[in-house]
Nucleic acid binder design. Structure first.
Length: 115
DNA sequence: TACTTGACCGTAT
DNA sequence: CATACGGCCAAGT
């Protein structure tokens, strides 16, 4: 048996999966690219409920200011930092310089206008 | 059903 | 730099 997953979550997962290695995106950017402008919180909700075993580059999703969402010192926090650095992303003091690594913000605004 | 939480965000002070 | 606030609203209790 199989229960249909919320289509919005599917679109969110797809948007996250589309982030290229070595790049990152904010929750808001992912929401916009999933056709859900202004609903960054839903991205967090979806991410929290990521099905076990789904190979999702969750670590490429950060706060809009580039900081890691998970609590400082938590296991997730350390793993996220490690995995980002492993693919060349600059993580300093729990934060990534978005100007240099984030997906194009202007494109997201353009997508927003199409909604 | 009602109320609270929260892997958020932009703006204001 | 740090709080505060309103907007957002699915999930959890």
């Amino acid at each position: 048996m199989r229960i249909k997953m919320d289509p919005r979550h599917q679109r969110i997962y797809a948007a996250i999966a589309a982030i290229p290695p070595g790049r990152v995106a904010s929750y808001g950017q992912i929401a916009a690219r999933a056709g859900l402008p202004g609903r960054a919180r839903l991205v967090g909700t979806a991410l929290r409920g990521t099905p076990d075993g789904m190979p999702l580059p969750w670590f490429r999703v950060l706060h809009a200011d580039g900081s890691i969402a998970l609590p400082r010192g938590s296991r997730g926090f350390r793993e996220q930092s490690r995995r980002l650095r492993a693919e060349g992303v600059d993580v300093r003091n729990g934060r990534v310089p978005m100007a240099a690594f984030a997906l194009d913000h202007d494109l997201d605004r353009a997508l927003w206008c199409l909604e």
